[in-house]
Design a binder for these strands. Sequence first.
DNA 1: AGTATGACTCATT
DNA 2: AAATGAGCCATAC
Length: 125
Amino acid sequence: MKKNKASPKLPVADKTKNYSFFEDVWDVVRQVPKGRVTTYGAIARYLGAKSSARMVGWAMNASFAVSPKVPAQRVVNRNGMLSGKAHFATPTLMEDLLKEDGIEVKEDKILNFEAFFWDPANEIG
DNA sequence: AGTATGACTCATT
DNA sequence: AAATGAGCCATAC
């Protein structure tokens, strides 16, 4: 891989753009209880940007650089698949963290995903 | 500045 | 049912 960027520029710090969406995403993810999971689409929909699930993914990508820490492992795609595991520090970190939360993972997929699904629109608002 | 890409999802074929 | 197109919009090059 190419040399690391000096610092992952935080979109939040930019003045010309309104990045409150990112902050809202992190805030929602931080509220996901241990042992539960949610999806990109659910977060996007809760924030009123139902079609911007991709931006939620970008928010997760930036979430590693923010504090307090965001439990990004609790965010998966709508199939319960660990689509973002490749972006963690190690290929197994996401899965390991989920298992620590008490969630069973088999072949990059959450078992009985619907039972653990946590919808912010349903739980927060 | 224009094109390509993506931690997504839904509609259409 | 599986494949494809389209919408979304911030980053990367």
